[in-house]
């Protein structure tokens, strides 16, 4: 119906956004007794979201005219943003920004680099930016989960951790069971995504590839590639941060800082 009125792709896109946004607003209006605050928040969130994503689209359009390596700059900016979001989530952990930045850069960075070297992810803006952003975003989520879970485990086992210290254990040994528990827990969503692939959900990138004309079979295989890459990047990032985090939650004299 819309394409009857709008002929350029851009105006059509904007009109489509408007329909989706109004629908969301209508649903919220209907459900306003459940979450009164949401009604105030939503229009602003929608406006913000649309501006951000349009800006990204515009930058991509601009980059497409330039050299392909500029996509690397975009990924670096994304990693910085991801680290600052993890820091907000892990407020109780001192110096969490550097921790998250180092972990995300090593995890996502190394895994993406390997995939690029093998040509699995082509060094093309149209592929590297969307796939890279998925990998980085998921690595970020896993990092937040890891640090939050670790904080939770440690603060609910202060007695055990300090008992271990009091028996002459190193900080690493005292916190080890809780590090391992957090590590296992934060990777569960990533493993479950691989397990449920295709049955429970057909993720966005496959939908996108099919929409833009790739063979559904190739798109399906590529979806597996993306999800396992996400797992590798997340696991590597957590591995790195599990080694760096002890120095942040203990003092140099092996005193527990969290409580």
């Amino acid at each position: 119906m819309l394409n009857y009125f709008f002929h350029s792709q851009l105006s059509l896109g904007l009109a489509e956004c408007l329909v989706a946004a109004l629908l969301a607003l209508a649903v919220t209006l209907l459900a306003r007794t459940r979450a009164p605050g949401l009604l105030k928040e939503l229009p602003l969130a929608e406006l913000r979201g649309v501006i951000q994503i349009v800006a990204v689209g515009a930058i991509l359009a601009f980059m497409l005219r330039g050299p392909q390596w500029t996509s690397l700059l975009v990924l670096i900016a994304m990693m910085l943003a991801a680290a600052s979001i993890v820091r907000k989530r892990a407020k109780k952990i001192p110096r969490a920004f550097m921790l998250a930045l180092i972990s995300i850069c090593t995890g996502a960075g190394i895994v993406l680099a390997v995939m690029i070297v093998f040509g699995v992810i082509p060094l093309k803006i149209t592929m590297l930016v969307p796939v890279g952003s998925m990998v980085i975003a998921n690595t970020m989520n896993t990092q937040s989960l890891f640090l939050d879970r670790l904080r939770g485990e440690a603060t609910s086992h202060v007695g055990e951790i300090e008992s271990a210290l009091a028996l002459g254990a190193s900080a690493d040994a005292a916190v080890l069971p809780y590090l391992n528990a957090a590590f296992r827990a934060c990777l569960i969503p990533s493993v479950d995504n691989i397990r449920s692939l295709g049955i429970v959900w057909i993720p966005g990138i496959m939908a996108g590839m099919v929409l833009s004309g790739a063979s559904p079979l190739y798109a399906a295989l590529y979806q597996f590639v993306v999800l396992t890459t996400i797992f590798s990047a997340s696991a590597l990032a957590c591995f790195v941060s599990s080694h760096l985090v002890t120095r942040r939650i203990f003092t140099v004299h092996e005193q527990l800082l969290l409580r």
């Binding site: 007695g159 008992s163 210290l165 009091a166 028996l167 092996e254």
Partner: peptide, 15 residues
């Protein structure tokens, strides 16, 4: 060193 100290000074807590 703290670990050495804590071996020499043991501790038993309430729980």
């Amino acid at each position: 060193p703290p670990r050495e100290l804590r071996r020499r000074i043991g501790m038993v807590m309430q729980r």
